[in-house]
Simulated assay, not measured.
Amino acid sequence: MSYLIVLPHIQVENANAISGLTYGFPAITHFLGFTHALSRQVQQSHGLRFTGCGVVCHKHQVQAYQASERGDHYFALTRIPLTREAKTAPFNEEGRMHMTVTLFAECEGSIAHGDTGARELEQHLHTLCVAQRLAGGTVTAMKPVRVMALPQNGDELQNITRREMYRALPGFALVDRSELLAQHFTERQTQDPQAEMIDAWLDFSTITFRAEQQEDDSVQWQYQPKLAKGYLVPLMVGFTPISPLYAPGDVAKTRDPSTPFRFVEAAYGVGEWRSPHRVTDIHQLIWRYPAGTEHYICSHAKPLQEADLTEQDHSDF
C-alpha cells in the first residue's frame, strides 16, 4: 500500500547553497538523501520504505552581501581561526542559506494498527527529522507530520492533491523540465552540428539582451525572452560516472573500503518553480533516484506533460 508522508514547513539554517556550477538552492539530491536516511530508519522500526520526495520552498535567504556598485554579490563566510604562524588558514568557500521547505515523501509498505499506528509514525518521524541535517543545515523547527493513504488515481487522488497543494501555499514547487533541455539541444544541433550540451544548458541560465537598430539609426538593447515559458532554472540533478567501477579496496582513502568505488561528476538539467496550486497530480511532484543503472540521475516517476500546463502557466517570467 502507498502512503503520502508530509513533512511540513521544515526550517533549516545554514544549508548548502552551492550545487556544482549552480547556487541559490540545494540540489535535489540533498532532499532525496534526507528522505533516504529517514527510509533506512523507518524500514527497521516500521517496515516502511520511502521511494521518492517532492519539494516545495516557502522561504529562502542566501547568506550573501553586495560589496560593490556593480551589483556583485559575495557569500558571507565564517571566519577561520589563524594558524600557529598567525597566518590566514586556507579553506574552501562555502555558500550557506536559510530556508523553509515542505517535503512530500512517497511511502511503500503497511502501517499496523490503523489510525493509531499512523499517529505513532507521525511522532516518530518528527523526532527523526529534527535530529537530522538537511542539505548540510540544521533543522530548527517544523510543523506536525501528516500521514495519509495515497491512491494511484481517481477522484480521491485529485482531492488529496488539491488539499495538500493549497496547504503548501504560499510557496513554489520544484519540478523537472529537463525535456526542454533535450529539445533545445536537438534544435541547436540542427543549426550547428558542433554545438555542445553545455551551450544549450547555459541558454536557460543566462539573461540575454540584443542590440537592435532603430529607424533613427540609434541602437537600443532589447531583452530576449527565455526559450520556454515558466520560472525555469538550471538545476543539478545527480551524478554521472567518469571512471570504471573499482573493486573494494582498489582506491585508497575511500569512505567505505568494503564498497565498490567509482569517480563521478555532477550532472545538470532544467527545473521549474511552479505554484503548488497548479500541480494537478501529486505524482508529478515526486522526484526519484534510479536503481540498477550507472547514471544517478534524479527525475520524476511521472513526467510533466505539456497538456498539464494551463494558460496561466504560460505567462512570461
Rank of each mutant, 00 (worst) to 15 (best):
Y231I: 06
S39I: 10
V62S: 06
F75W: 09
W201N: 04
G54F: 02
S68H: 03
F31L: 06
T35P: 01
A200T: 05
A267T: 08
L180G: 07
Q123M: 09
P276N: 03
Q284P: 03
H184F: 11
V279A: 07
A131N: 12
F261P: 02
G249V: 07
R119I: 00
L245C: 13
L21S: 13
E94L: 13
Q66D: 04
V264H: 05
M142L: 10
A135D: 01
L180C: 12
A64W: 06
A131G: 01
D256I: 10
D281F: 04
V55H: 03
P248I: 09
V6K: 13
E69F: 11
T310N: 10
A211F: 11
R84C: 04
E179S: 15
V279F: 08
I282M: 08
I5M: 15
A17D: 10
R288K: 15
A27Q: 09
V12T: 14
E108R: 11
T280S: 15
D250A: 14
E272S: 12
Q41F: 00
L121P: 00
I111L: 02
Q214G: 09
L77Y: 02
L4Y: 05
Q183R: 15
L121E: 00
H36K: 13
D256M: 13
A37C: 02
V219I: 12
A211G: 12
T22V: 10
M1H: 14
L245P: 00
A17T: 08
F172P: 00
R133A: 03
E120L: 01
D250N: 05
K253P: 00
F239M: 07
I28P: 04
H184K: 09
V270A: 00
E164M: 12
A182L: 08
F34K: 01
G117N: 06
A182D: 14
H98W: 05
P90C: 11
G109V: 09
Y268G: 09
L4A: 04
I242N: 08
R288E: 14
T190R: 14
Q222L: 13
F263Q: 09
A291F: 13
P276Y: 05
H73V: 10
F91W: 06
R96A: 12
G238V: 08
F185C: 05
E156M: 04
L128P: 08
